[in-house]
Design a protein around this nucleic acid. Structure first.
Lengths: 190, 190
DNA sequence: GCGATTGTATTACGACCATACGACCATAAG
DNA sequence: CTTATGGTCGTATGGTCGTAATACAATCGC
């Protein structure tokens, strides 16, 4: 039945998901057309609907995949609160700010995501909460449940700070904002 | 020379700016076409370029106008830090979250703004800083200069919190996040 | 090793919408 | 009644999403 290797289509799908994730973060969701997304993966627009039901389907899948990948990377840093501080500093770094296409999808796309349909937002919610639970376990290993809201609110702080730093044209102010954001985040974690 | 009253075209322009501000916040910038924007103002697309050089020109103008209007409204609340607390609570309220088209343009559009061209971002920066300086004067009347970064970072916290609360599908979690955001903002202001 | 089978991707297409602009017209001020 | 003006409409060019018919290529049975 399977004339092609089973992994062939799956690999293509994964390639589309990954290049789309980067494209969305660079150009926005509404700013990325299907033809462009497929060209990024080395394909043409016609093949798109063999892999996804709709563009919105890809959006949910790509954002979820980006967050999953980010979560895996975060699992590698030092455990406990020391690791958390390291994560905060990397998140609110000028490098992260200046390369949105390789960074956090929330920072690049959050207000477009909030205008998406409910299924997409649910997928997003689940993916974010998985990361938040990891954070909560770092912060309060004995009671991660109650730490959930705390880490979520710190995440919101980091997302907003990075977005604002990206929008400001005053370089020094944008840098100061990042540093102040780090201080604020660390203070709220204690 | 002026066959029409001077105020006629100006009034039309202002009407376009105001309806466009609401439309952008509801549907996003890339999600709002020129024809729709003009129809909202009771006109057709052709008249657009008699009022604005380009869509991007309208974006900058509309966002700036929204922030100016917000700044004027904020000037009316009780002075000093008491007023600040009132502002924070209104900003992070479920009402604000559930009606983006009447709310803060930063919360609705920040990551789309950060993908705009430099002139648009500069206009945005100026408008935001005007509000921030008002905030700083409330917080530290004797030294508003050094309070600028503080209030800007709290603004970033509020923007991120509202955006995240809009995106989450878990209602209780979204509500808890708003409340935690209020506590965090107030703590950071002291 | 070879041809038939079968899944993948391409190209072409439809209907619609995007921004931008220019010709035309009704209207209102002088 | 003339004239400048704001607005409508039509057009040019290119993009959008989504679908369908077609070409290609890789694996299987023989």
């Amino acid at each position: 039945m399977a004339r092609y290797g089973k992994e062939h289509k799956l690999a293509t799908r994964q390639r589309i998901i990954e290049t789309a994730g980067r494209r969305f973060k660079r150009s926005g969701i509404d700013g990325s057309g299907v033809a462009t997304l497929m060209a990024d993966a080395g394909l043409t627009n016609g093949a798109f609907y063999a892999h996804f039901e709709s563009k919105e389907d890809l959006v949910a899948t790509a954002v979820s995949d980006q967050l999953r990948e980010q979560r895996e990377r975060l699992a590698a840093v030092a455990p406990g609160r020391a690791g958390l501080e390291q994560i905060v500093r990397a998140y609110l770094s000028p490098e992260h700010r200046d390369h949105p296409e390789e960074g956090c999808p929330s920072a690049a796309l959050l207000d477009e995501i909030s205008r998406c349909g409910e299924p997409t937002r649910r997928t997003y919610t689940d993916s974010v909460l998985a990361i938040m639970d990891d954070f909560a376990a770092r912060l309060a290993p004995e009671d991660p449940e109650s730490a959930r809201t705390t880490v979520l609110s710190v995440y919101a702080l980091m997302v907003g700070t990075l977005q604002l730093s990206r929008a400001l044209t005053d370089q020094k102010l944008a840098d100061d904002l990042l540093e102040q954001g780090i201080r604020n985040a660390l203070a709220l974690l204690d």
